[in-house]
Write a protein that binds this DNA or RNA. Structure first.
Lengths: 345, 345
DNA sequence: GTGAAAGCGCTAACAC
DNA sequence: GTGTTAGCGCTTTCAC
């Protein structure tokens, strides 16, 4: 094949350790040792080899090196919430973009590569999947097969949000969901709400269950009966619109707290189309900020998570885990509440 | 080392082709052929081997397979604009998050893994860097060393934004920068601006030069002298604030068009702090939307790029390139102008 | 139709 | 101090 116009194979042919050895007039072992600071070589040979390697622009092939059991300098990121969504369309899934961006910058700043991997349990398995040094799994759900798979293969991992049903597993980081929930609920109460309905998703992840728990206990504290609605994440804005009808039929609460921005936007839209004033009659708040909460009219108050802080913490934990240490975990970050028009009275 | 509690090495030890061969009572060649649909095997053996492999949960090791020259099912993404920025803090670098998110979802939807790689030319080189099937390089600049490196190693790549100084290189996609610029300029003119100053960045990428070219020709068409300012991307909001002083000293234009959201926010802030009314006296617009343009007061009109469309196009091109085809390229997408308070008269 | 064997580039025992 | 050599798991000729 013409070397100038194409490539015989997907893999680029670079300078090998053999080339360096020949050029430096030593054995490949010498090169390997010199470059990895192992073995016993005279300072002179070591330096000489290093120079030759540099001159030639030699870079060890990660694949070959990896085969001999070493670290790849790359961690995987698997987005369970998106896997669950079925497609990978990110529109409106703010957390997704934010978290990926944050995790990427955190990883890059640490000199690590970050590999985004499609659902590990669906075949064909992404070829490099099992070659990563470790994994970040976002929002694992109860009995998550990806987590099980990583466990089985002995690959270190950390999770964004605790793994439900596994209280013993400490290697996670997340915003303080309970605190977040109270932040919103107290805000609504301060603005005069007595009865608050909660709209949670159906995914069995910590995010949903923690918020629900905080909500029920908040209601209990105030002697209020909880009004809990479940709406599938994938139902999106439309699902919220439909749900608004049911909520109204059940009797209007003073406020509705939706965990996702899309549900919040939908519920608000649905309420208003029934002639319910927002925020006048009912206030609306979202548990995670997105284009939908920002773009709605009125704009919707929402929690902004801390993906930068969380992903940084996760990478810290993961790095020590890979290094064989015992990191302190979990690590908790804080969300911030943006008060917008939908709760302004 | 205890097999149950830890791992000897970073690499997980899975089921190998040997195990399958032994269990199925055939040679490893047979297994390889059966699983890859190569060679000549009887349908019976083939089926039998497939079954055994499935039962055992066998998955070929990508590293070993990769060594024998095949495809990794993963493409790399290298963000030149961020590399240039020096750190990988994404705050306010909307395009970054948006593009990464979009590229990720596009890649995942195609069953490809996407690996974010730190600057390829800085050592230590990310180990897996040269093992990717191909690369997306965002905003390459003139004589970009990363592009040169990929060329040298014969690794296929596509660029987000054309590669300056390489008009012959067709494998890129981007918004139509010239059209974007005219969109903004015409909008400003329609709102009554006669003189418009342009604030571009200093990176030698297509984004900056295309916008500048469109701007100068727009000015020429109207017989106006161009007023061009250059401000380093990394100068951020503060740089914009400082620049506002210079712009005012040079005589206020009717509008300022800043290519980055941070510069726009800074310039607007700087102008207002000098008592210049925005949009009353001077209008401000940004060439790329971000928290900064949305969050400024008044909110700043800005172009929203099409990262989803662009990254989709890029992956299409890259995939055919990897497959050894000759894709049609370049592919152009369109930006959208959000008209906000900063240009509302 | 099937399998033995040669390597891909690298690391690490183990000789010398 | 330095080099020989045996693999890591896989694909692929090439005998049988």
């Amino acid at each position: 094949m013409d070397e100038r116009t194409g490539r015989e194979v997907a893999r680029a042919q670079g300078i090998t350790i053999k080339d360096v050895a020949r050029r430096a007039g030593v054995s490949i072992t010498a090169v390997s040792h010199a470059l990895n600071g192992k073995g016993t070589l005279s300072a002179a040979t070591r330096a000489h080899i290093r120079e030759t390697a540099d001159e030639m622009g030699y870079a060890a092939d990660a694949l070959a090196r990896g085969m001999r059991s070493s670290t790849m300098g790359a961690v995987g990121l698997v987005l369970r919430s998106l896997d669950a969504l079925g497609d990978y369309k990110p529109e409106g899934v703010d957390v997704f973009e934010k978290f990926v961006g944050a995790a990427a910058s955190q990883a890059l700043a640490r000199g690590l590569s970050l590999m985004l991997v499609p659902d590990l349990t669906r075949s064909p398995v992404p070829p490099l999947a099992f070659s990563m040094d470790g994994y970040i799994v976002t929002n694992p759900h109860r009995d998550d097969p990806v987590v099980a798979l990583l466990d089985r293969r002995g690959i270190p991992y950390v999770t964004y949000g605790s793994a439900p049903g596994r209280p013993d597993f400490p290697y996670w980081a997340s915003e303080d969901d309970a605190a977040s929930a109270r932040l919103v609920l107290d805000h609504l109460a301060a603005r005069g709400a007595r009865t608050v309905a909660l709209v949670r998703g159906t995914d069995a992840n910590a995010w949903n269950s923690e918020h629900e728990a905080a909500y029920t206990s908040w209601c209990a504290d105030r002697g209020l009966p909880p009004r809990l609605y479940e709406l599938a994440e994938r139902a999106g804005v439309e699902g919220g619109v439909d749900l608004a009808r049911r909520i109204a039929a059940d009797g209007l609460p003073d406020a509705v707290f939706c965990l996702t921005g899309r549900h919040a936007a939908g519920v608000q839209e649905g309420l208003m189309s029934q002639g319910v004033e927002v925020p006048g009659r009912v206030m609306v708040a979202a548990g995670s900020d997105s284009e939908h909460s920002r773009g709605a009219r009125p704009t919707i108050s929402a929690l902004e998570l801390d993906p930068v802080g969380s992903s940084g913490a996760l990478l810290d934990i993961l790095q020590s885990l890979i290094a064989g240490e015992r990191p302190t975990a979990p690590r908790i970050t804080q969300a911030h509440l943006w008060e917008r028009a939908s709760t302004k009275r």
